[in-house]
């Protein structure tokens, strides 16, 4: 069994709890607003579309949504140890991780890939297939980000901080300054997938598609495996 509906239900309600849902809605709403304003001011322009979708949607929104959904799917439960109620059950721990991963991917994609697609259509009506290309990149990125940040959630109480550091410092800052860093960036791997679809040379990745595909798979599978191992050995220290 790879999926447990009860675990999924609990995870979904935890991640989409009131405050978190607001934060999750904030960035997509901002993206849509930007798209509407830009379209009204500049009209349909592939280069501007690529700038907004690549610069904001893919580079900022997807990883941030991924941090919130990925760490939120397990971090708080481990933090306050309420996860005991899930773990003290005859349910294989890998099942729990895979279920939580599925929910985290679903939420990340719903709050990032879908708005990216909508914003793409608003910006340029899918000229040069940019809307679909970036939405696909966002969807692919959602999988790897969710898996990576879910693992962080099983490792550290400060998973959100580490997640933000990865997304903002490693990918965004160092990625734009240091060349090699881009090879190890989920964002660039996702772009490589989108590059196949987008036309007009607006969407370019620093990583070749075969390499990107392999790295995406390795990161997703590897982090998920590691998270399951962490959960199998989860320890509650006496707090006396």
């Amino acid at each position: 069994m790879l999926y447990h509906p009860t675990v999924a239900r609990l995870t979904q309600r935890a991640v989409l709890g009131r405050r978190r849902a607001l934060i999750l809605l904030l960035l997509p709403a901002l993206l849509i607003v930007i798209a509407i304003v830009v379209r009204a001011l500049v009209g349909a322009d592939d280069e501007v579309t690529a700038g907004v979708l690549g610069g904001f949607a893919l580079a900022t929104m997807v990883p941030l949504i991924g941090v919130i959904a990925g760490t939120g799917a397990i971090g708080p439960e481990i933090d306050d140890s309420s996860i005991v109620y899930l773990l003290a059950k005859p349910v294989p721990r890998p099942t729990i991780i895979l279920t939580k991963l599925t929910v985290a991917i679903g939420i990340t994609a719903a709050f990032s890939a879908v708005p990216t697609l909508i914003a793409g259509f608003i910006l340029g009506g899918n000229g040069s297939r940019l809307a679909v290309a970036y939405a696909l990149a966002a969807a692919v990125g959602s999988v790897a980000y969710a898996a990576f940040f879910l693992m962080l959630g099983t490792i550290s109480r400060h998973a959100v901080v580490f997640g933000l550091v990865y997304a903002l410092v490693w990918e965004a800052l160092l990625g734009s300054l240091v060349e090699g860093v881009q090879t190890l960036s989920i964002q660039q791997w996702s772009l490589a997938v989108g590059e196949r679809i987008g036309q007009g040379g607006h969407l370019v990745s620093e990583v070749a598609l075969p390499v990107a595909t392999v790295l995406l798979a390795v990161v997703t599978v590897g982090t998920t495996w590691f998270a399951a191992q962490r959960l199998r050995s989860l320890t509650l220290a006496g707090e006396e």
Binding site: R13, S81, L236
Partner: peptide, 12 residues
């Protein structure tokens, strides 16, 4: 198991 910790799924 009845743990000592208070934390539960408070939103349920």
């Amino acid at each position: 198991l009845v743990p000592e910790r208070e934390a539960m799924y408070d939103f349920l």
